[in-house]
């Protein structure tokens, strides 16, 4: 097992390198750069920036060098010093801007995932075991609808309902007085009281799709001979369902887990914009719009790393669940 994890972690290194390249390329695709943007803005206000000044700024921001050179400089700074550069627009180190949002994104994704599990597993199992019962029909239908509704639409409807009928805004992860406050017990409490709405919104799609996957997997597994064997052994039905088909059904479930996690990490982007959450997504969008290259690159890179770490965990979980993978 330890060997497997080690190998799996080693495999992450080429993946991370590839991710940094992809990120950098994506950030560099848009024609022009931040300086161009400044120049355009300046021109609109009537200022004139000379070519020399432009070049000076490029040098200052390190935008003058060739792309591979820029990439190497960027990556080595991150790898050696954890220095993600500075945000051109806000003139603050990227790491400082990102750090709290990264944590919040992670917390939000993690809690959503746990919530998805807590809801989807029992419903999926029930749905499969009591196939064609009214409960199953209902769960199946809800799952279908849940998959079909875009999460930002749920967020919008929620916004509308709470505004219209409760007269309050549900946006944000903190009450206004806590947004800038340092962490304290009260702030944690405030965070938790705000957390559940985005969590539920983010989870609905995941819950729906996992109910469908789990139900289909369970139906396959319930027909397998080892279930009959377990019955002939005289095990209680509930016990054998948990021990055999459920655990088998969880295998494909867990291997699709990284997709779920990746989706959560990234799906949070759009919902966050709607609910104005202080997560990575809105910042990324903002940075992209302004060609704030280092901020966008750092954000994208960290989101990707988060996703890769999620994949790692799901693989480890899978290996723990399924000895066949460990022994391979």
């Amino acid at each position: 097992m330890a060997q497997y994890i080690l190998r799996r972690i080693l495999y992450m290194i080429p993946t991370l390198i590839a991710i940094s390249i992809v990120t950098f390329v994506v950030i560099s695709i848009p024609p022009g750069d931040f300086v161009d943007q400044l120049v355009t803005q300046a021109r609109m206000t009537g200022e004139v920036i000379s070519l020399e000044e432009e070049e000076g700024m490029r040098m200052q921001y390190g935008l003058g060098a060739s792309l591979p050179e820029q990439y190497l400089r960027w990556v080595s700074a991150i790898a050696t010093r954890g220095d993600f550069g500075i945000s051109f627009r806000l003139n603050l180190p990227v790491s400082q801007l990102v750090s709290e949002r990264l944590g919040l994104t992670f917390l939000l994704s993690l809690s959503s995932m746990l919530f998805i599990w807590a809801i989807a597993i029992p419903i999926g199992v029930y749905s499969a075991v009591r196939r064609y019962s009214p409960g199953d029909t209902m769960a199946t239908f809800i799952a279908f609808v849940g998959v079909a509704i875009p999460d930002f639409l749920i967020a919008l409807v929620l916004l509308y309902v709470s505004f219209r009928y409760f007269g309050q805004s549900v946006g944000g992860l903190f009450s206004p007085e806590f947004v800038e406050a340092p962490w304290s017990l009260a702030r944690v409490g405030d965070f938790l009281s705000h957390l559940w709405i985005p969590m539920v919104v983010l989870s609905i799609g995941g819950i729906a799709s996992l109910i469908r996957t789990l139900r289909a997997n369970m139906l396959d597994e319930l027909r397998r001979p080892y279930v009959t064997t377990a019955r002939t052994k005289g095990l209680p039905e509930w016990w054998l369902i948990i021990k055999y088909p459920l655990r088998h059904a969880l295998n494909p479930f867990v291997s699709s887990l990284n997709d779920v996690f990746v989706n959560l990490v990234s799906g949070a982007t759009i919902v966050s914009v709607v609910l104005s959450l202080q997560t990575m997504g809105p910042m990324l969008l903002e940075a992209l719009r302004n060609q704030d290259a280092f901020l966008a690159g750092g954000t994208l890179l960290l989101l990707s790393v988060l996703a890769v770490i999620g994949t790692l965990f799901s693989d480890i979980l899978l290996a723990w669940l399924d000895p066949r993978i460990r022994f391979r």
Partner: peptide, 20 residues
């Protein structure tokens, strides 16, 4: 009764036993 008084074995032990 199952497993205690009356036990059963099957054709394909690979699929009748759980690999997990």
């Amino acid at each position: 009764v199952r497993g205690k008084d009356i036990a059963m074995i099957f054709q394909e032990p690979m699929s009748a036993l759980s690999p997990l």
